[in-house]
């Protein structure tokens, strides 16, 4: 029963026109990046962070793409899915239908969280795969050069990419869980998206003020830059672990609030 409900949820999300458009947009990112670096590759590279080592290093494109998208694009997509999941269903009156079927409210949240996770993983993986293809096609590759100047074999590089996919997906799901909590309080999906994106942007702005450094450890966005450590060699897991724990706290809070709201909500 649960598997068929989960399957139905994912099929339903995949059938949405906006999901298709969103995925299409996400896939464009690594292609544009690869193309951009390729056309600019006559100059001597340079630039901060990963951008500096992209030249001739196509395997880094998926990681660079995901790292870049994590700041805005992926939270946006997660918030859209979370918004449609509860607020959108309430708006169309379909949430009532599900509850009367009946689907218990806890299970409903589980189904929604699963849909969000499955689709996030799918979107992130899709971006990474397209990134590998576009990156190697435009920029070529012999393994993967790390930020530490070492060169990994293709297999080792793929392991790094898979690790990064999982880390980024987890961040995305945590943001989505908080968005689900917002989603459970309203019938307007746009409110959910606006609230989520505003929060992410405000967090990033707050993160720029050194005078607010007491606040920074609480902001989920603080954990984003640390994920780049996947591209160092050997990988220092300290920051990666901290970022993941931070996101895990958001996941717990978001899921808990959404559950509390759903259980007590009148529909």
């Amino acid at each position: 029963m649960i598997t068929r409900q989960l399957g139905s949820e994912v099929r339903w999300m995949l059938r949405r026109p906006r999901t298709i458009i969103g995925l299409f947009g996400l896939v464009l990112v690594p292609i544009i990046i690869s193309f951009g670096i390729w056309t600019a590759s006559d100059e001597g590279g340079g630039g901060p962070g990963l951008a500096a080592i992209l030249k001739g290093n196509g395997m880094v494109v998926p990681i660079f793409t995901l790292f870049l998208s994590l700041n805005l694009l992926l939270p946006l997509v997660a918030s859209i899915w979370a918004a449609d999941g509860l607020a959108g269903e309430a708006q169309h009156g379909t949430l009532r239908g599900l509850l009367v079927a009946p689907v218990s409210r806890v299970r409903l949240l589980f189904v929604k969280l699963f849909g969000l996770t499955a689709m996030s993983l799918f979107a992130v993986t899709l971006m990474a795969v397209v990134g590998i293809i576009a990156g190697t096609a435009f920029l070529g590759t012999d393994g993967m050069m790390t930020l530490s100047g070492t060169t990994l074999s293709t297999a080792e590089g793929l392991v790094r990419i898979v690790l990064f996919i999982l880390l980024v997906t987890f961040q995305m799901v945590s943001i989505g869980a908080v968005a689900l909590a917002v989603s459970s309080t309203t019938e307007h999906p746009l409110v959910v998206q606006a609230a989520t994106m505003t929060t992410i942007i405000v967090f990033q702005v707050l993160g720029q003020f050194p005078s607010l450094d007491w606040l920074h450890p609480f902001l989920i966005t603080t954990g984003f830059p640390g994920l780049i450590d996947v591209m160092r060699d050997p990988i220092p897991f300290g920051q990666i672990w901290d970022s993941t724990l931070l996101a895990g706290c958001y996941l717990l809070i978001g899921t808990g609030l959404a559950a509390m709201r759903l259980i007590t909500k009148d529909n």
Partner: peptide, 13 residues
């Protein structure tokens, strides 16, 4: 079986 407060369905399906 219930039909409450009008039919609720997804417009894109």
């Amino acid at each position: 079986g219930a039909l409450v407060e009008g039919p609720g369905f997804h417009p894109f399906l």
